[in-house]
Measured scan of single mutants.
Amino acid sequence: NQASVVANQLIPINTALTLVMMRSEVVTPVGIPAEDIPRLVSMQVSRAVPLGTTLMPDMVKGYA
Rank of each mutant, 00 (worst) to 15 (best):
M43H: 10
L19N: 10
P57S: 09
T54C: 03
R23K: 14
G52M: 04
M59G: 04
D36L: 07
M43S: 11
I32N: 00
T18F: 03
G62V: 03
L40A: 00
Q44Y: 11
N8F: 04
P38I: 08
Y63R: 03
R39E: 08
T28W: 04
L19P: 11
G52Q: 05
V26Y: 09
M56E: 10
V49M: 04
L10Y: 08
T28V: 10
S24E: 11
Y63S: 04
N8I: 08
G31W: 02
M43D: 03
P50C: 07
V6G: 01
A7P: 01
Q44H: 09
L55Q: 01
V5F: 00
P29D: 10
M21D: 07
P50K: 11
P33N: 13
V5I: 12
V30E: 15
A34S: 14
E25S: 07
K61H: 13
A16P: 06
Q2K: 05
V60D: 02
L10S: 11
T54L: 09
S24I: 12
L51G: 14
V5A: 11
N1V: 15
R39W: 14
I32L: 05
Q44G: 04
A16Q: 13
M59P: 01
Y63H: 05
P29F: 03
E25Q: 06
K61Q: 11
A7F: 02
K61P: 11
G52H: 12
L19W: 09
A3H: 14
A16C: 08
P33I: 15
N14M: 06
S42V: 03
V6W: 01
R39C: 11
I32K: 00
E25M: 06
S4D: 01
V30T: 09
Q44F: 10
V49A: 07
I11M: 04
I11R: 00
S4T: 05
V27R: 07
V5T: 11
M56R: 10
I13K: 08
P57F: 06
D58V: 09
I37T: 08
T18I: 05
A64V: 14
R39V: 10
V60N: 02
V60M: 04
R23V: 10
I37Q: 08
P12K: 07
Q2A: 15
T53K: 07
G31V: 01
V6K: 04
A34I: 09
V20Y: 08
L19C: 06
M59Q: 04
L17G: 02
V27G: 03
V30A: 09
R23Q: 14
L51R: 12
E35P: 07
V20W: 08
Q2V: 10
V45P: 02
A7M: 04
L19A: 10
M59Y: 08
A34Q: 07
P12E: 13
V45I: 06
I32Y: 01
P33C: 05
A7S: 15
V20I: 08
T18R: 05
G31L: 02
A3N: 15
I11Y: 00
V20T: 13
N8A: 12
N1A: 15
S4P: 00
R23P: 02
V49I: 14
G62E: 10
V30F: 06
P29S: 04
I13A: 11
L19K: 12
P38T: 14
S46L: 13
L10W: 09
I11C: 03
D36N: 15
E35C: 14
K61M: 13
I37W: 03
M22Q: 00
L19E: 09
M56A: 08
A34N: 06
N1T: 15
V5M: 01
P12V: 06
D36E: 13
N8K: 13
N8W: 03
L51V: 15
P33G: 07
M22V: 09
P33H: 13
K61T: 14
G62Q: 12
V45G: 01
L51C: 04
Y63K: 04
N8Q: 11
P57W: 11
L51I: 15
D36Y: 10
A64F: 04
V49P: 02
A7T: 15
M56S: 08
N14H: 08
K61A: 12
L40H: 00
D58S: 11
M21V: 03
V45T: 13
R39K: 13
T28K: 04
R39Y: 14
T53W: 11
T53R: 13
P38V: 13
A48P: 15
V27C: 06
V49W: 02
V27I: 09
G31I: 02
R47A: 14
T15I: 12
P57Y: 06
V60Q: 01
V49S: 02
Q2S: 15
T18W: 03
S42P: 01
